[in-house]
Structures are given as structure tokens and as C-alpha cells.
Amino acid sequence: MLKMSDPVLKVEGLKTSFFTDDGEVPAVGGIDFEVKEGEILGIVGESGCGKSVTSLSIMGLLPSPPGKIVGGHIYYQGEDISHAKESKMRKLRGNEIAMIFQEPMTSLNPVFTIGEQLEEAIKLHNQRLPKKEIENRSVELLKRVGLPRAKELLKEYPHELSGGMRQRVMIAIAMSCNPKVLIADEPTTALDVTIQAQILDLMIKLNKETNTAIIMITHDLGVVAQMCQRVVVMYAGKIVEEGPVKDIFNHPKHPYTEGLIQSIPDLHGKKERLYTIKGSVPKPGSITKGCLFAPRCEFVMDKCRVNTPELSGGEHKSRCFLHQEQGRKEVRT
């Protein structure tokens, strides 16, 4: 039995690349992080930072070819699953590690009923459960994710449901076997803000009830701030900062994190000119030397263009020379 503080999932030096006609394109360039039991961890970053590829690597769902894990380890409850056999991964998927996706409109199979898709998930990992029992559990799950008319819903098709309801069904499917880890890849990005609030609320509730750890992958710092205990900030395939949510928002130790926080317009208070990070995200593999953020960084120093900083620090780590050497608490005052 694991202790409360032990990580249920641990990623070590994970490197994932895509092998295209133009050669190897690194999508994830060596990342380390861990998720403790019952914790909500945020992985935040802009498009192309490698956050989705990370989640697919954990699930063993990389489109392969062209995607491939080229280095590092993924430990689930102490066991390395980075190169586990497909049959082993099938037992983990849905049962121990479940996943929900960004597009609730297309993530359910349009030609099967909600019941068929939910019951399938239960049956896959509980072969001997009687039919009646599976149905009861499906109804129970649909109720638990806050769907009305659970019994009738089992016979309906996805197109008869709204986006928010479909995402609830996806969550019901993911939670059907009481997984230890739930990976949520931008689960509310496609939803309207009032529906997003409902779904986030539901996820927090389920996290408290079942103690399932959640990896929340998102580009929305608001979602991270309101939901997560710890956060990993990714940029161009690497982790640039990691730590408790409050520390990161209150005292960011990387100019990129700082820039991201500053670029969001406020809902209240004085309207100021928005802070901008100049330029745009580099193409994967285009920067081979120095800090990946150096070309866009306001505080860039000569060494940043030559040497690659390491991720370092205690609980609150960052990958930036500025902080490591000067020990500055904040980039900007």
C-alpha cells in the first residue's frame, strides 16, 4: 500500500519525438514531474509546448508512427510503464489511469448509445460482473456526474446531448473503474464559461470523493489557479517552472510564467495596457543552444544564449539563470 505522500505517477526524463520526413522533431524534451495520490496537478502551457504529447505518452496512446518515446521513464505506482506491452497498458488504461479530452462533441462514438459506451468501459475491466449490475452501476455513475434522467439517457445517442452533458458522460466513463489518476486534456476549452464552471465544480467534487489524482492539462491560468494545488509550466517541450500554485502565481521565478500571468486581461480593476511577450513560440527543435526562451526574454543575458539552464530549486523549481544566480524572488517588482 502506498503512503499518502508517495507519488502515484512519476515521470522521469521523458523524451518524446515525432519522426517525420524532415527527420526527428522533439515534442517533449526531457521532463520530470510527479503526481501524488488525490492531488490535482496542473500542466499549463501554450499550443505546441508538449503538454498533450506528455499525456498521450503516459497513456501509451501516441500515434505511432510517427510518435515515439525516445527516452526516460514513466512510473505508475513504482512500476515503469514507458515501454510496457500493449496488453499490460490495456489493463491500466481506463482502469487505473483514465483520460478525458478537449472535444466532448467528437469524443463519443456517434453510432452507439450512451449506455453501450459507458457499459463497455465498466465491462472491460470487470469481466465477470452480471449485466444487471453493470446497468445499475452505469445509472449510478450518470447520477454521480450530475446527469438527470439517467435511465433514459442510457438509451440515447450522443447527438441528442449538449456539449456539457457529453463531457459529463466522458467523465462518467473515465471514473467508471475508480482510476487512481485522471488525465484531463483541456476538458473545458470547448465549453461555454457557465458550463465550464459546472464541469470544473464536478471534477473538484469527484476528486474529493474518490481521492483520484487529476492531471489538469490546460492553457487557461484561471483554471489552474482555481483548481490545482501544484502546477507545472511547460514551454517548447520543457518544464520551465514547477511548484505550488500560490507560489507560482505570487512569486513567479521564470520570465515566461511571469509574462503569461501578466498578459491576461483583468476582470476587475484598472485597465492597463497589456503586457506582451514578444515574438511567438519557436518551432520544435529550432533552438539547439542555450535557454529556449532566450529569444523572447526581456531579461536575457549573454550566457542564456550559450548555456542551457537546469531546472532547480526546492519545492518551487525554475529553469532560469536569473533566479539561480541572483536568487531574485521576482522577475519584476
Binding site: 457557465t194 464552471a197 465544480d201 484561471g222 489552474v224 482555481q226 500554485v245 500560490k246 502565481f249 476582470l267
Partner: peptide, 15 residues
């Protein structure tokens, strides 16, 4: 409903 990007502010949500 808007998640505020500030962990210090816990808004009272009206869901």
C-alpha cells in the same frame, strides 16, 4: 463562472 487567474482570490461561484 470565469476562473480568476489568481489563487489568492477564491470567488464565490454562482453555478
Amino acid at each position: 463562472s470565469v476562473p480568476v487567474p489568481n489563487p489568492n482570490v477564491q470567488t464565490e461561484r454562482m453555478i
